[in-house]
């Protein structure tokens, strides 16, 4: 064996995908309108266990599946998605803008939910 390319694929991604599969299964089982409302009303601080686990999943997704808030020069806030690639700026997600950081962060959370449910 002489081809160093053999180490270019990271087998760890398969294990992560397996972990993510059963994490998503749990999260889908507890996801509810009430959970989403809990986040809307109080995005920071102490949360219920299902919301804590859901937020942990959102926050630890791969970088290119993460969202951020872009503070515009117009004073409005928009959701963007990180590229996960060095020096590649985040891309806009939709055209909605929000009056407050809190609303925009909740919108980012809803994008994670969309990714989770596929809807």
């Amino acid at each position: 064996m002489t081809d160093p390319d053999i180490i270019s694929e990271d087998a760890d991604i398969h294990v992560r995908a397996n972990f993510d599969r059963f994490t998503r299964a749990y999260l889908l089982s507890v996801l509810s309108d009430a959970l989403i409302e809990e986040h809307r009303l109080k995005p920071e601080g102490h949360h219920s266990e299902p919301l804590t686990r859901l937020l942990n999943w959102c926050q630890t997704r791969p970088l290119d599946e993460q969202y951020a808030v872009l503070a515009g020069t117009d004073g409005r806030f928009r959701v963007v998605r990180l590229s996960g690639k060095r020096r590649v700026p985040p891309a806009p997600v939709g055209t909605e803008s929000y009056a407050t950081v809190r609303e925009a962060r909740h919108a980012a959370f809803l994008n994670h939910i969309k990714d989770l449910t596929g809807k």
Partner: peptide, 25 residues
């Protein structure tokens, strides 16, 4: 933009500005 640990650490999505994006890019 680059640190996978930052959102679990801060608990919230970051709030970036035009200046952040410009200098990152």
């Amino acid at each position: 933009f680059d640190a996978h640990i930052i959102q679990p650490m801060t608990g919230q999505p970051p709030v970036v500005t035009e200046l952040d994006v410009e200098t990152y890019e």
